[in-house]
Design a protein around this nucleic acid. Structure first.
Length: 443
DNA sequence: TCTGGGGTCCTAGGACCC
DNA sequence: TCTGGGGTCCTAGGACCC
């Protein structure tokens, strides 16, 4: 059993001295469509998901008609027809392109920024807040908005705060309040409590449907109440993630700017079928196609996968059908990004988890434990259990001498003894990776 | 060198984000 | 009749390991 003190949050040294701006494109996909067709200005438009099944973006006019985010199209067919809402299939190439233009523009305004999603970026404005008065930062943000609009045609809103979460809150207000008119600044704000009170808890970054329900049962309805919640209560109800979130609302920054995008942890390719599929052959065909797509993504990013997962699911909305979902994981013998090899394993996976008599609605593959493609290695020997280790490493050295160093690489595992000393000395155990002979030392 | 409680892996599910 | 796709992180129990 863990006590709450053990899981206290370690704060960065400048946790109280930061300034973030969150720049968020307004109705991004809809705005992209508009940027290329001015006739769409002031008209209600929506953009659909991959299979044209759900609504994934709406212009302001479409929102005003009551069309919800993520709504299935068939459920708002009436509104669409009645009001002549213009419907677009999604065009991710276009959106990706426009996103790049927006981000390039933003990079002019700060040396440090985090591209958070296709239509959002956090800017580091630390240090800017005391350059002048509250108003100057706001003016600066307005200048950014105007420039982005002018250079890309995309309208953006900006929220400013001491933490990322507060920048998000501010952004929400920037968008919703007509007074704010696209920019809202929560730095040194006399309106902090009012602003937080105005924001419904479900609109706070990190509070989803489940947590909203839970917290409302405790009478926590807005961001102000959430900020002032009892630490123990939020820790119990939402774990360490919830506690961190509350700190952030208290102007204590726990989430840092991630300026360089880390290597992806996985690549997924999956799709819902237009109809239910019952035959193994059809499933295999589909999965082979997904693997092909995923492998292309991998190679584009110059990565290779060490793990492959295949999954199948039935349709959770069909209450009358038997439900089934299953996945299988393969640890690949070596990192790879070759389509043919990957398909081979994926097909084994489908064979393994396919069960006759079920109607499948969705399938996919996920490639994980990604490494840079140039690190693809082939295992020739496993020396861990051989007494001839020295002979073999000598032989490898000779080959490297003749063929050039690094022709053959080898991994050395050094292990600290797990039961030497007290428990705090046991972990982490130390293992080396692909390197030249390291002298292993646990630290 | 020694051994028990602690580490790691696996699986599945939950929650959230855009 | 028709309900997205691609991500991230956290948690928890059981097996297994030494």
């Amino acid at each position: 059993m863990r006590s709450t003190t053990e899981t206290a949050i370690t704060l960065p040294t400048d946790a109280r001295n930061r300034c973030f701006a969150l720049v968020d494109c307004n109705n991004f996909y809809a705005s992209c469509e508009r940027a290329f067709d001015p006739r769409l200005e002031n008209k209600p438009i929506v953009v659909l998901s991959n299979n044209d099944g759900c609504i994934v973006a709406r212009s302001g006019e479409a929102k005003a008609l009551g069309i919800g985010m993520g709504q299935p199209v068939f459920k708002c067919r009436d509104i669409i027809e009645k009001h002549g809402v213009l419907v677009f299939s999604s065009n991710y190439t276009l959106y990706g392109n426009m996103s790049e233009r927006v981000m390039n523009t933003l990079s002019q305004f700060t040396p440090e920024m985090e591209i958070y999603s296709i239509d959002e970026a956090f800017l580091n404005l630390s240090g800017c807040d005391h350059l002048g008065k509250h108003g100057d930062l706001t003016e600066y943000a307005r200048h950014i908005c105007a420039t982005v609009k002018q250079w890309t045609g995309i309208p953006v809103s900006i929220g400013i705060g001491r933490t990322k979460t507060l920048a998000k809150v501010a952004n929400r207000i920037a968008k919703k309040s007509t007074r704010a008119n696209g920019v809202f600044n929560l730095m040194n704000s006399p309106h902090m409590d009012k602003a937080l009170e105005w924001v419904d808890i479900s609109d706070v970054w990190g509070i989803g449907g489940r947590s909203t329900k839970k917290l409302k049962a405790y009478g926590i309805n807005n961001a102000l109440q959430l900020r002032d919640i009892d630490d123990q209560l939020i820790r119990r109800q939402m774990g360490i993630v919830g506690l961190r979130l509350v700190y952030e609302l208290r102007e204590i920054s726990c989430l840092s700017l991630e300026t360089c995008t880390p290597i992806r942890k996985g690549v997924t390719s999956s799709r819902s079928f237009g109809r239910k599929i019952e035959s193994l052959d059809e499933l295999k065909e589909a999965v082979a196609a997904y693997v092909t797509k995923a492998a292309i993504k991998l190679r584009k990013q110059n990565l290779a996968a060490q793990i492959l997962t295949v999954f199948l699911t039935t349709n959770p909305y069909s209450k009358n059908d038997k439900q089934y979902s299953k996945s299988v994981v393969f640890h690949l013998p070596a990192a790879m990004n070759n389509t043919v090899e990957l398909i081979h394993y994926a097909m084994q996976g489908v064979d393994k988890i396919f069960k006759e008599g079920y109607k499948y609605k969705k399938a996919g593959v996920m490639l994980a434990e990604l490494i840079p493609a140039e690190q693809i290695q082939t295992t020739l020997f496993d020396l861990s259990n051989t007494k001839r280790k020295n002979k073999l490493t000598e032989a490898i050295d000779v080959i490297n001498d003749i063929m050039g160093s690094g022709t053959l690489k080898y991994a050395i595992q050094g292990g600290t003894r797990p039961w030497n000393g007290k428990s705090e000395n046991r972990s982490p155990r130390y293992t080396t990776s692909w390197k030249e002979l390291p002298t292993a030392k646990a630290d």
